[in-house]
Amino acid sequence: MILLILGLFVVSCHGYTPFRLTDCKNSTRRVVTLDGAPQEYPITFPGHVSVPATVTVHRPVEGPYTLDVTVEKFFFFDYFALPCFSNVGSCTYDPCALLNWFRNACPWQLRESDFPCTCQTVTQNTTYRLQPHPFYIPGLNSAWQWIAYGDFRVTGRLIEDATGEEVNCYSLEFTVQAALPELSWDIWDW
């Protein structure tokens, strides 16, 4: 009986969600338009992911804006929000401060694609294309790994601070699976 309950728990917590990037606010005042999808899917953790993407900037990005991110994980029969912990999870950010984190060490994947690493270098009415270079997703401490696998929904809402208006909203649904250990079938390893 315990094995049946454990099996149902594992199956209900981890399914397969097709990758979806959805515009959840079709605003005429939008700041950016996003499009893209990972080449390797489902996403493997730890591991590499290549995400060719297109970002079109319609308005100045220096704001000030607030980015309200909600990260939800599927448990049993519904999604539940993960709290903000050490600036990861369902948190509120200054989007330019996030980009400025890269100011001194812009990843080569972004540099090779001429993708801006600070708000000051983003040009209005421009389309940026991120080439499918691999990004490495490192592993977590084993105590936290259980939360990294499964089906997720991440919603990002960009709010204009001066008016309180939501000017962008994107929802991202995806699956993260555990990386399989590499097995050696060499008879000399025995």
Rank of each mutant, 00 (worst) to 15 (best):
P107Y: 01
W108K: 15
T66S: 13
F115Q: 06
Q120A: 15
L130N: 11
V49D: 04
R59I: 07
P134G: 02
G63M: 10
I43S: 08
T118L: 08
P95N: 07
V61R: 07
V51E: 02
A143M: 11
T126Y: 08
V69H: 03
S86M: 15
R111I: 14
A143W: 01
Y65S: 08
P52T: 06
E112A: 15
T66V: 13
L140W: 01
E62A: 14
N87Y: 08
T118R: 11
W101F: 15
I43E: 05
P42I: 13
E72W: 07
Q39F: 04
C106Y: 00
T92Y: 01
G139C: 01
Q109G: 06
F135L: 13
E112S: 12
P42H: 13
P138C: 01
L67C: 01
Y41W: 04
P64Q: 09
P116L: 06
V61P: 02
A143G: 04
Q145G: 01
T54M: 09
Y65M: 05
P64G: 12
P95H: 10
F102S: 12
P95F: 03
L140I: 00
Y65I: 06
P52K: 09
T127N: 00
L82D: 09
N125D: 15
C96V: 03
S142Y: 06
F77W: 11
D114I: 11
T44Q: 07
L98C: 09
A105G: 09
T92M: 02
R129Q: 10
V51F: 14
S142C: 04
G139N: 02
T121W: 02
H48M: 07
Q39D: 10
P95E: 04
F85N: 10
G63H: 04
Y136Q: 03
P138K: 00
V88I: 12
I43P: 01
L110S: 10
Q131K: 14
E72K: 15
Y79M: 10
P52W: 01
L67S: 05
S90Y: 00
T44P: 02
Q145T: 12
V51K: 07
P138N: 02
E40T: 10
T92I: 08
Q39C: 09
H133F: 14
P60H: 06
D78L: 12
F135V: 14
C96F: 03
L110K: 03
W144D: 10
T44W: 00
C91Y: 06
P107A: 05
T44I: 11
E72V: 06
F115E: 04
E112P: 00
P134I: 04
L67G: 06
L99N: 06
F45Q: 01
P107C: 02
